[in-house]
Nucleic acid binder design. Structure first.
Lengths: 348, 348
DNA sequence: TGTTAGCACTCGACGTTTTAGAGTGCTAAC
DNA sequence: GTTAGCACTCTAAAACGTCGAGTGCTAACA
């Protein structure tokens, strides 16, 4: 892998910073004046030509300045971006009273973040991710209804009614219960994937359709009550960035924001992984969600110490102010910790 | 008030129907051919000139066809629109199982409606509107916190913490409690308006600021827990109508949709009025919400028999397909009645 | 008196041309 | 290795011309 020499790095840095500010392609003359290395525009041009060949920048058309490519942004985020020393500034704009319900807090936080950053924001309610199934119970309620109860190690309880065509006899119910418990206990909710399901159905034999229903129900319950607890704000901020605000793109993006389920995809990956609790930056195609290939997405996981986790996400143009966004998120992580860790703050 | 003669009425009808279909200004020649009255374009022109003078139609620019004015639309909705005989068609697209939670039902309904109509839609959860205040209690919790409890005749209880600068003595608390109860008891939540508030503050004397806080808190509590139970869908449908989809307007509209509180304004008026449970059509400026002056809003109240009410709203361009929308809403009213009146459907 | 044909006029939509300016790549000189 | 100079490219924006839909008005007609 070829490194960039110092001068190229400086120039790339200057190009990107300039572009982040203006949103306009930046030309050689601009850099010649803007940067502290005293070089004529012609020299810069030569270097820029190299940088383009290396894939860090590109030209929208023949006689325009250069803009950063995804690779360029990536290089910037990884190597060039200043990491400000974290000094936690209190959230003062909205007085978040600890007596408020968690829902209110999250709504306020996501709104505040959207206002501060001028990007679209989202936040998920803290939940027992990667929590393990402790107990499953199917009970016949009447001729056509079965109640499924799922309990996790965090003692989270989910109920779900299932309609069946015909009553199952006690023995079958017992067998199904045992099967479900032996197969699923100890698995985290995320680990119940297609493979597990296939195996389970196989073992259930003629009752595989019921298993299927049960799992669908469980999955749905989990989805609804947990994954879907997503609050968003500032979706219309995208209109502030011309590169995103033509009808087509804006419509798609806002649709994605409406369909909160899609947003879950943004943060699930990070929530699922045990280690990663830092801040993730997805640039363009790196994003887990197709709709956002023209955007950058920054996500952070916040933790409540007792295994509860939630995620925050910011969606904006590729030329987003990464430094500011990352700062904001870091800050918020600490803030949320403080808020929710207070004894009376946990009420939901 | 001058009536429109039959011919003018027919022409106006033709203009509007044509415009609803095409979205293009409609000229005299078009009407001459389109309508069944055999008149030359010249005659139509004369009549159109009259209609314009009367305010029912207008010209976007000198040499263009005519489009309906708000007054024209109003006339159409009130007099011209066909009232289809209601035949209730079952909602089949989404199998709404009665075992689902109400929240799920509402989300599905609002989505279905958005898909069917191609407009933006909203629905509020049923709630005890125009319920009367039964009891108010302020209690000093600690040096700086007061707890306000409001109970309504439906036995709905609202709590709200209020921060105060200094502790109030018992006598004052007592007086405030009496004042609040004598002033507000028996009033519906909607009847506590600015007038009431002003009177109340006057009587509270030096503690008027606390009253203010209390009322703010009460209002906020009511708003949040009830009014804010709003589900929306199809916000991006507005991009389907060029007259609404320029950045500026789209952004404002979608913002309004994000701020669900604003949407409450759309239906509150109707929910508050005892009688009106039909279908309301707001055209342009008639809309209770400023942001929607370029749209039409159609709302309907659905009832659950036991005093619970919710509202459905559709927001679209002025040239919306009123007949279809009204039909849809009528249909839905009946459907929701059916769904929620089933014994096990009430779980929320 | 109401209706119609005819005509001049208006005005936006749309495609073409022109212009201005920013930026590049290349070459030759330093 | 750096820089000045220059020809070239390409876009965005302005300027222009044309087309056609639609109007208002007038005069003729039934």
């Amino acid at each position: 892998m070829h490194e960039l020499d110092e001068r190229k790095t400086k120039i790339l840095n200057a190009i990107i910073r300039n572009y982040l500010e203006t949103g306009e392609p930046v030309g050689s003359r601009t850099i010649s004046k803007y940067s502290d290395l005293n070089l004529s525009s012609a020299t810069i041009r030569n270097e820029m030509s190299d940088l383009e060949e290396l894939g860090y920048i590109l030209q929208p058309h023949t006689s325009a300045g250069r803009i950063p490519s995804d690779l360029g942004y990536r290089f910037y985020v990884d190597n060039l971006m200043k990491q400000k020393d974290q000094e936690v500034t209190e959230i003062k704009e909205f007085m978040i009273e600890r007596t408020e319900k968690m829902e209110q807090v999250l709504k306020q936080v996501v709104k505040l973040l959207a206002n501060n950053t001028n990007y679209a924001t989202m936040i998920t309610a803290p939940s027992y991710h990667r929590n393990k199934v402790k107990f499953i119970q199917l009970s016949q309620i009447d001729e056509t209804q079965i109640l499924a109860v799922v309990v996790t190690e965090g003692n989270m309880v989910k109920n779900k009614m299932i309609s069946v065509k015909e009553r199952l006899d006690n023995e079958t119910m017992l067998k199904l219960n045992i099967l479900l418990n032996t197969s699923l206990n100890g698995l985290s909710l995320e680990e119940i994937n297609l493979g597990t399901i296939a195996r389970l159905k196989e073992q259930a034999g003629i009752h595989s359709d019921i298993i299927s229903d049960v799992l669908d129900a469980v999955a749905a319950a989990v989805q609804e009550d947990e994954g879907l607890q997503i609050y968003t704000s500032g979706a219309t901020n995208i209109f502030k960035y011309p590169e995103l605000s033509d009808s087509q793109k804006a419509s798609e993006l806002i649709s994605a924001f409406e369909e909160k389920q899609q947003l879950a995809g943004l943060v699930n990956r990070q929530l699922a992984s045990q280690e990663e609790t830092g801040i993730q930056v997805y640039i363009g195609d790196e994003s887990p969600v197709e709709t956002m290939k023209d955007c950058s997405v920054v996500t952070a996981v916040y933790e409540l110490g007792d295994g509860m986790q939630g995620a925050i996400g910011i969606i904006g143009p590729k030329r987003m102010d990464y430094e500011n966004v990352v700062d904001n998120l870091k800050n918020l992580k600490v803030q949320l910790d403080n808020i929710f860790k207070k004894p009376d703050g946990k009420e939901g």
